[in-house]
Amino acid sequence: MRIVVIGATGHIGGYLVPRLIQDGHDVVAITRGNSAPYREDPAWERVERVIADREAEDAAGIFGSRVAELEPDVVVDMICFTPESARQLADSLRGRARQLVHVGTIWTHGTLTEVPAPEDAVKQPWGEYGTQKEAIERLLLAESRRQDGLPVAIVHPGHISGPGWPIITPQGTTDLEVWRTLANGRELLLPGFGLETVHHVHADDVAQLIRLCLEQPDEANGEAFHAVSERALTLRGFAQEAARWFGVDARLRFVPFDEFSASLSEEHRDSAFQHVARSHAMSIEKGRRLLGYAPAYSSLAAVAESVEWLRQAGRLGDGIPPVRFG
């Protein structure tokens, strides 16, 4: 197939695009600039590159037609953030492409009632990002379920992890000081009783689920799927396990959220609130049952690989021992 990937050089695309090439597909990568992929791979030499500023071209009403003119069989959209952008793309691809795979977020769920939450749980999104992504999901699922609509499958990743970038810590931030604190056996503050949750996923497992949607369109189209690991992590358990990677016991102190938030640097306070307040724990039963989704990484394995990459890249400073996981 000829597959156009929008936002191809990001975290997920770094795994997805080489795998699509290995699967025998022709891949066109649309990016805003000449950025290098997060992961080097010889397969990128066989990828057609197209540079486009989506935001500007959406505003001009031409981005959807630009994508359609590439004559894709399938489009994988990693970077759609508004319903209007989604509508323009769907209008341009309707009747011309076999399938659109939209990459959303588990934040479409907002606050949860039961956990692990299935895809069809009543959604209560909050915050601009989650609210916009939930509106996109409703628009595209309605489009896919129309008799003459564009077939659409939706993949909702959790907290994306893997080598190459900071990942969500037991404080719900990307603050690298958390890993240094745990590695050195220093005290780490956590909110409440540390029983709030975060749900990670390795970028390669997101790529796996996207590929399953491409391989099984009859089962995938008109549906949304969670791309997360088998199980979420409590903040307390996450911190304790991470400290053990460095051969020490975690020194944790539990405080009210306001005190916890005040202890963080200003740049990390909002991230902590966004993650801790949502406290997501998602089900993957639907993806397993319909598509055979089987994440290769647990949450801890995905994060451990990420932290070891940060250490080897010198991002954690001197004197941090290697991560010993599993």
Rank of each mutant, 00 (worst) to 15 (best):
S229P: 10
A203Y: 00
A68W: 01
G237C: 05
M282V: 04
T82G: 02
H280P: 00
L291R: 06
Y297W: 13
A281F: 08
G13W: 09
P157L: 01
E128D: 15
G10V: 05
E114W: 10
E308R: 07
E285G: 12
Q22H: 14
A313H: 08
Q88P: 00
V75I: 06
G158R: 08
Y129G: 11
V4S: 08
W309I: 13
G164K: 13
D77K: 05
R186S: 14
L70R: 05
P322E: 07
L141T: 08
G61M: 08
L182H: 11
V115A: 14
T82M: 05
G95A: 03
P18F: 07
A272T: 13
G13L: 00
L70C: 02
R211F: 05
A8E: 05
L291F: 01
C213T: 14
L252A: 02
T174A: 06
P157R: 00
R236S: 05
E57F: 05
P116R: 03
T181A: 12
Y38D: 07
M78C: 13
A60M: 10
L235P: 03
R39E: 03
L20C: 02
L176Y: 11
I21W: 01
R145T: 13
L182Q: 03
R211V: 08
S92W: 09
F325Q: 11
G7K: 11
L189N: 01
S35K: 12
L233Q: 11
A203M: 09
R2E: 04
L195I: 12
E267R: 15
L212S: 02
S283T: 10
L16F: 10
S271V: 07
P191L: 08
D26S: 11
R2V: 01
R145Q: 15
P163W: 11
R94K: 14
V74S: 11
V17E: 06
L176G: 08
R96Y: 06
I30W: 05
L209R: 12
T9A: 14
